[in-house]
Design a protein around this nucleic acid. Structure first.
Length: 491
RNA sequence: CGGGGUGUAGCGUAGUCCGGUCAUCGCGCCUGCUUUGGGAGCAGGAGGUCACAGGUUCGAAUCCUGUUACCCCGACCA
């Protein structure tokens, strides 16, 4: 435990992996590509989930739950959808095991083959739209605004804790609407919910935009996304919201009768964020000393550590800290008093820094004499003394300040590493040398996009919603460009 | 899924080429005492199917085959 983390400068991806494990967030399981999310990591995910769930409900959605298994036939009804997901599906083919005849153990019973294979959901559009067909007859049944919290499975070639695992946790919203306009408005609204969550709660600045046709969700007419920049300058797609048009309604024959008794296909959206947000959180704020958590998501916002020479002091300090802790908790702040006698203060300081606890209050005999706490903040690694008298106000202000500071720091990094480029040379410099986002003109064709990806591994992260029309020329083809788009290497 | 690397106690490791008292060391863990303002010290102690499964051999951590997991590089992706 006394070993230091690999630093970001030494090896960014190794730093990430070590940090996830050492901070007790998650670890590798015995199952290929699947992780165990440990209690401390899960506590952060729960906080994310609780915030988002509340926002979904405020925006009129209800939770429901659909099966983990999808009959193969459902899955193939929407052509683009099956193309997009076929290569990464886990499939259930049998329903029984038996003892091997040669005594070598348990084997799949060949007699127990399913009539129709079941896909372990990689996403639930098909099973949900098959259900919606039965739920929707009239315009009075619309809109349907449903979300589910679930696990999904995508058989990825190469996995990384939180960023890309074969099984992951997420939420998927699936809504049905009478009109195109309403569905588009819904997709945009949920994108806003995601963006506000990312920025205000995670303290992660994001760019809202459209995906290009090429990067669009399989089966969508338009995909909106939020893109964040990690500390190494690479992009991470943090959430997506899809306008699905009538594709799934047509595939599953979901129609409604309007007021004049005309039958029309229903309009759809779907939107989701996953445990990948944990990866975004870690890679945005953490440093070489360990995790750095924004107070809004920290399972422990304040840790209190006593420093003492004997039992008598220990008792006095613990009593004092309990009073302060109670006052802080009354303000809704989560506090842990680490009164464990088996570890020394120095050990505890390192431990809570590794775990990203935003604020540490230290109380020793000297502080008690002066009626003060030593207050350390994780984001800047600085310490100061604060009078005990108004410690609750001071800590509240400090937590707010840390939350803002983390956002501002991340925004400053993104601003610093985002470059407007016009020529191919400038572009290569940004992508390969400076490692950042390139705001570049693009001729709007998939061919050019693919060519650039092939040459540089950079992809179009999004066409920002706030991009302005600007005549330019594509840096690769010289063809006319209408607006700048965001290029970057991505996770 | 292709190429390369790795797997020895909870973690990190030595030993693998050249088979034979080699299972080494550090951290952690347990007990006791002393400690406690930035990862404590001393003393004693516990802990291993050498990734897994076969094979070669009088004998395998070491050689051979297969499998599995992780890491790096590609292709795929939230």
């Amino acid at each position: 435990m006394s070993e230091k983390l690999t630093t970001r400068a030494e090896d960014y991806s190794r730093w990430y992996n070590e940090l996830v494990v050492r901070a007790d967030l998650a670890e590798q399981s015995g199952v290929r590509g699947c992780m165990v999310i440990k209690p401390y990591g899960y506590a952060i995910w729960e906080k994310m989930r609780d915030y988002l769930d509340a926002r979904f409900k405020e925006t009129g959605h209800q939770n429901a739950y659909f099966p983990i298994f999808i009959p193969k036939s459902y899955f193939s009804k929407e052509a683009h959808h099956v193309d997009g997901f076929a290569k990464e599906c886990a499939v259930v083919t049998h329903y029984r095991l038996k003892n091997a005849e040669d005594g070598s153990g348990i084997v799949v019973d060949p007699d127990a083959k399913l009539e129709e294979e079941l896909i372990v959901r990689p996403t639930s559009e098909t099973i949900i739209w098959d259900t919606y067909r039965r739920w929707i007859q009239s315009y009075r049944d619309l809109p349907i605004l449903v979300n589910q919290w679930a696990n999904v499975v995508r058989w990825e070639m190469r996995t990384r804790l939180f960023l890309r695992t074969a099984e992951f946790l997420w939420q998927e919203g699936h809504t049905a609407h009478a009109t195109r306009e309403e569905a588009i408005a819904e997709a945009q609204k949920m994108l806003d919910v995601y963006a506000e969550f990312a920025e205000n709660i995670m303290a992660v600045p994001v760019i809202k935009g459209h995906k290009t046709e090429n990067e669009r969700f399989a089966g969508a007419e338009d995909t909106y996304c939020i893109e964040a920049m990690m500390q190494d300058g690479k992009a991470l797609q943090a959430g997506t919201s899809h306008f699905l048009g009538q594709n799934f309604a047509k595939a599953f024959d979901v129609k409604y009768a309007d007021k004049d008794n005309n039958m029309s296909y229903v309009w759809a959206t779907s939107w989701g964020v996953s445990t990948r947000l944990m990866g975004a959180l870690i890679m945005t704020h953490s440093d070489d000393n360990g995790l750095v958590l924004p107070p809004a998501l920290a399972p422990i916002e304040v840790v209190m550590v006593p420093i003492y020479k004997n039992k008598e002091q220990y008792d006095i300090l613990c009593k004092k800290m309990s009073e302060t802790a109670a006052a802080l908790r009354a303000e809704g702040i989560s506090v842990k008093i680490d009164d464990d006698d088996s570890q020394k203060p120095g050990w505890k300081f390192h431990e809570y820094e590794l775990k990203g606890v935003p604020v540490r209050l230290v109380l020793g005999p000297k502080d008690l004499e002066k009626d003060q706490y030593e207050v350390a903040r994780r984001d800047t690694m600085t310490k100061e003394f604060m009078p005990m008298e108004n410690i609750v106000e001071s800590v509240k202000n400090l937590l707010n300040d840390i939350q803002k500071n983390l956002y501002n720091k991340a925004l400053a990094l993104r601003t610093e590493r985002t470059y407007k480029v016009n020529t191919w040379e400038e572009f290569l410099d940004v992508i390969n040398v400076k490692c950042g986002f390139a705001l570049a003109p693009w001729d709007g064709t998939t061919e050019t996009e693919e060519k650039i990806k092939e040459l540089t591994k950079a992809t179009i992260r999004c066409i920002p919603l706030d991009s302005v029309e600007e005549d330019g020329v594509d840096m690769l083809t010289g063809k006319p460009s209408k607006r700048r788009v965001v290029f970057a290497k991505a996770y």
